[in-house]
Every structure is written in C-alpha cells, then in structure tokens.
Design a binder for these strands. Structure first.
Lengths: 342, 342
DNA sequence: AAATAGGATCGAAACGTTTCGATCAAAGTT
DNA sequence: AACTTTGATCGAAACGTTTCGATCCTATTT
C-alpha cells in the first residue's frame, strides 16, 4: 500500500542527467541550461518528487526548523495571547518552507530544562515570546543560533525583537480618557521590571503630563506581583480603600482590567457611568465582558509573522540582527469608557 | 563563540571503542559489557554529547516528528479547545522524545493543500484533531503512516481515535436538568452529520426516554449549519418564536449555549430562573458568562496526551491500531442551571 | 581436546541529499 | 592560432548516524 517514494537518483535517471544537476535545478543554484532544466523539472513533476527533509538537513547542515519557546505560564494562560503569536509565526513559516517546533520552558529555568531541539541541534534559529529566562537567551546566542524575541526585550542582550508600541498605546488609551473629560485618572499595573509594563506606565505619565494633569501617587498601583485577573482584583481593592476614587482607570492589560471590573461590580460601582475603564491587549475575553471592554488592540498574529520574517532574513544573511521592530497598536472604543458624568 | 559540537566519533575515540559500539550503548540495543557501557557513558557525559536528530533520521529512516493537523476554522476559533488538545499532545510528546509539527489545512481540502511534512516525509505519524477531510485521512493511511484521530471518528476509516464520551456526557447533562425538576427540555444543536453532535443528541434522547419524558420536536433544534455562538443565537430565536418555551435547554456545546444566553438576555428572560441552560465542552468562556455556565467538562489536555500515547504505541508495534479510547467527562454545575420554579 | 555456541565488538555500507572541485566544450581575446 | 574565460555538467566526498554481517574471544558441550 505504502507508495514507493522516489529519490533524487530516480529523477536524475529519468531526466538523463547527474544527481548533482538535479540538485542544482531544484535549489535554483548554479547555471543550468534551459534545456536540462526543463527535462529535470519534467521528471520531478512526473515522479511527484520531493526531497526528503532529513537528507537535505544532514547534507546542508540546516534543519529547516525554527524553535519557538514560551514559558509555561505564558502558554497555559487562559488568554490565548501568545498562542496567537505562535499561530502567526506558524503560518508565515510555511511560506518560507520552515517548520516550527514549539516548546515551553519553566519560568524557573535551569540547565536541565534546555529544550531538546537545542541539544540535538534540530533548529536553525529560535523565536521566543514573552518574558523569557535570561540564561536561555544567552545559551542560544552562545550556540551561534539567531534569536528573535517577541514582546520582550532585554537591554543587555543584543537580539532582534518584535515589540508592541507600548508607550504609544498607553498614551492613546489615556488620551482617550482625557478627551472624554476625565481628569482624575488612575493606573493599575504590576511588576515594573517587565519592560512592557514600565513602558505602559511611561505612556500613561506622558499623556497626563502633556495635558497638564496631576499624577496622584495613590492612584498609581504598581505593587502587584503579576498582571493577572486576581491581581487586578486586588489592585482595585487597594484603590477602593484609599479614600477618593479616580473617575477613570487605565489598566496595564485586559486581564487586570477584568479583575478591576469584577471588584467594581461587587461594590456596585457602575462602569462606565461612575468609573471609566480601559485595558490593553484586546484579548478575546475583553469582548465577553459586560460592559465590553475598551482597550488597545495588539496585532498578535502580525507580530508572530514579523518575527518569522525577521528570522528568515537573519538566516539568509547568516548574522544576528539587533533590529527592533515596533508594531503599531490601535485604540478600540467599546462600552467600558464613556464621557465623564458631572 | 559557537561551541564545537562533538559527534559520535569523538565519543568513540574518547571511550576507546568503535562508533557502532557507542551507537549500541546509546540506543540500548545489542549486548554490551558493563565495562564498555560505563566507558561510553562517561565519554558521552564528559563531552555533553547528543546525537543529531537529522543524522539519526537519515540513518534510521525515522524522523522523530509527529504531525499534528487541524482544520483552519478549528484553530482560528476563539475558543482554545483544540489548542489545549495540541498542548496536551506536545507535553506528552516530549516524554517520548518526539517533536510535534503543527499545521492547519483548509476545510475545503484538495491535493495542493497536502501538508509539506507529508510530502517531505518529515513525520513518522500523524495526529488529527476535530473534523478533518476524509481524503486527507485516506492519503496518510495510504502513505503507510499511522494515524490517530482526536474528537472525530469516521465509520469508514479504520483508524485509532480518542473520543469524548459524548453520549454519556449528554446523558449526564440532561439527567441533571431532570433531577432539578425539569420536564420540558429542549435540545439546541446543529450539523448532525458530525458524529459528536449526533451522539450528544442520542444522549439527550436516552435520558429523556429513560425518565419517561416526551421529546417535543419543536424544542429540538437541529437546523443550524454549525455550532458557533451566532448559530446558538439563531437557534434560540427559532425557539422563541415557536409558542411555548421549554423550562430547560441542553445546548450541544458551550458556544451555542452562549449564543442562547445572549438571545435570552435580550428578551429579558432570566437564566436560570425562567430557563435553565447547560452546555458541553467547558470552554474558558463558560466561566466568564453571567451567569456562569453549567456544562460538561471535557479533559482536553488529557485527550491530547492520550493521542500521543496511542501514537507512540503504534510506532513501537509498527502497525495501525483501530482502538477507540472513550474519555470520560464530568458534569460541572455552576449558575445557569437551577431547580425548576413552580 | 576438539567442536560449538554465544557474547562482545567492530568495519563498512547505507540513508538521500548538498557541494566542491574537476572536466569539457564553446566562445571570446590577444 | 594559441590562450583564456565562461557556462554546463558531472563525480565523489561529506554530513552523522544506524545496522548488518563478520570476526574474535571465551565458555560450554561432547
């Protein structure tokens, strides 16, 4: 039943040329006469020949695979944020003829967690999304493999990266609130050591300052350890206990915004009537909320695709790029933000 | 900077044995004296040697890769149902030393969409999740590759499969409604040609009959083309127009249940007070609803893992299994179902 | 003591490509 | 007319393993 698969030899025989000539034609290298090219391609077609990846790999010392690394918590998250980035990469990879091998590593990374595809030299390059262990980045760079980071950037490692325009996004979100007439605006964030979060805070401050609005320290919550729904809930809790409330809140991501929303509902505070709320990321859940969440849309699939493009060009040039691509975002106005009631 | 990677030759030299002996030790084949085994393993360790996958692949005619195929719409769906199955497979694959290569194919499948990893013979077996083109299954079987289906099963193709216990799940859901005192129960489904959906209808009928309750044709909606949120919305619409309403509804999946809920809210009908509602699948969104959706939990990651196990054993025995594994489900009672008000 | 069996080890072929250097013919240069 | 360049093609080595059959040694059987 299993059909016989032809090899390059069969093609060569059929076309009446040598094996190496067939290889040249297939890989579009070296000069080949129009005549032989035709003959070869005809034979290829006739036999439905496809070179075996594994053989190409051994001979050319390229596997044709790209590793895609996420940390455990990023992938197991309810929100398919990084999953979408992955998908974008996967689809783009196909265009280039690469395979993507996905793996996750624990946040508490140590030597024995080194992905097998690195040990076995089974990838030509690595794309990593989200905050990823420092050591791992260094290890891969050390192997001489090109690296692209997505949605993360570390000042010390000189790698290529695809980044959300966090400052601009936050700026837009806060400006939106200001244009709705809000003057008392709070920031809900966490873990400022993460570059994305601190950038979003920067954007917040920039918008406030440019419009001559005061930044009230009690309304800037940055004590939460992470940026999950429960953290948002907690942060809102803190805010509620601190006397006067702001009239609008910019949460550093949708997950935290959802946490805030939940806490506000429990206190019977109406969104957006009493407090306007805007998030960041535009995860799927933002659309499920009541009210539906205004947010900053992030083009996740696009980011994944861009990472693959960057990787492909590094693979072509054979050198590690340090280019940082800033991907624009888009303000999405839904129901959780409204003109300030007076 | 790029560290030199050692090959099996280096290990052989260091251990003072032949290359073939090293191979025997590493792969735990053939008889090797304890003495040499020690020497070899010591050298392996010392040099941090790992065989290159690509070389093993060529020599052994096994790639070490498993293909994972989804249809486009399954992967781009908002609900990460199949994504979770994929994740389960991926984690399990690591234990066995396999890599997973993910790809999607269009629903309208034709010859030119054959995944590249098949043409290039870059996988040892294929796992497919969800409803998948008939032709593709046949093609792969034809290549002599083992196949496992997840959450889909076609009577004509004799393949292994990991299946949700749909009949039992539906039976439990409906029985739950009956135990709450409901007698007028509706079914919201679509596309009965899909085995999962028709099985869920079977479970519905079984529960109704066993409890001596009538199945009212007007309350059994099976006219929708698919099982999405909008279809659920539409189905509810139909139900609303048909005179008397049931007091409880079993939707064949959570997506449709969400659609129903949305429509009910628009009409100001309270769930669960006026109508109890239960879904199936336990997707993430079920937890986000207000009220939170009662449903039948499906162990998605587990199903993915089981598929990998099945694949591994087929790869070991070198033969296509036709075993069907029925994975149990679990009733999850949340807020959308309540005792019938009288 | 010779014959046999079995365990341990090894050399070499094979897997299916790419790629490098060699060869040869035709065209261009002096 | 001799020499050089260029284009087309090819043969063979190389990639790093696995695996098969051969060989050698030791222990067992007769």
């Amino acid at each position: 039943m299993a059909k016989k698969r032809y090899t390059i030899k069969d093609v060569a025989r059929m076309a009446g040329v040598s094996v190496s000539t067939v290889s040249l034609v297939i890989n579009k290298k070296g000069p080949v006469s129009e005549e032989t090219r035709r003959k070869v391609l005809h034979a290829v077609h006739k036999l439905d020949y496809h070179p075996r990846r594994v053989a190409q790999g051994l001979a050319s010392q390229k596997t044709g695979n790209i590793g895609f690394i996420l940390t455990d918590d990023h992938f197991s998250l309810v929100e398919p944020f990084y999953t979408k980035i992955f998908l974008g990469t996967e689809v783009e990879a196909r265009k280039y003829g690469y395979y993507i091998i996905l793996t996750t590593v624990p946040n508490q990374f140590s030597k024995e967690h080194i992905p097998r595809f690195l040990l076995e030299r089974n990838v030509d390059g690595v794309i990593m999304a989200g905050r990823v262990p420092e050591k791992l980045i260094a290890y891969i760079r050390d192997m001489g493999l090109p690296v692209t980071l997505v949605d993360y950037y570390n000042r010390r490692q000189k790698t290529a990266a695809i980044l959300i325009d966090n400052i601009e996004g936050a700026y837009q979100a806060v400006t939106h609130l200001i244009e709705l007439g809000h003057k008392k605006i709070g920031f809900v964030g966490g873990d400022l050591s993460h570059p994305s979060i601190s950038d979003r805070l920067t954007g917040f401050k920039k918008a406030m300052e440019e419009h001559g609005l005061p930044i009230v320290p009690e309304w800037v919550i940055t004590t939460e350890r992470n940026t999950s729904v429960p953290s948002g809930y907690q942060a809102m809790n803190t805010l509620l206990k601190s006397g006067e409330l702001p009239t609008a809140i910019f949460a550093c991501n949708d997950a935290m915004a959802i946490g805030c929303l939940r806490r506000l509902k429990e206190s019977g505070i109406r969104v957006p009537d009493q407090i306007a709320l805007i998030g960041f990321d535009d995860i799927d859940a933002a659309l499920q909320m009541e009210p539906r969440l205004s947010t900053i849309h992030v083009y996740k699939e696009r980011m994944g695709a861009l990472a693959m493009q960057q990787m492909a060009s590094m693979l072509e040039n054979g050198e590690q790029s340090t280019e940082k691509v800033l991907v624009p975002v888009e303000l999405v106005i839904r129901e959780s933000t409204a003109r300030k009631a007076d």
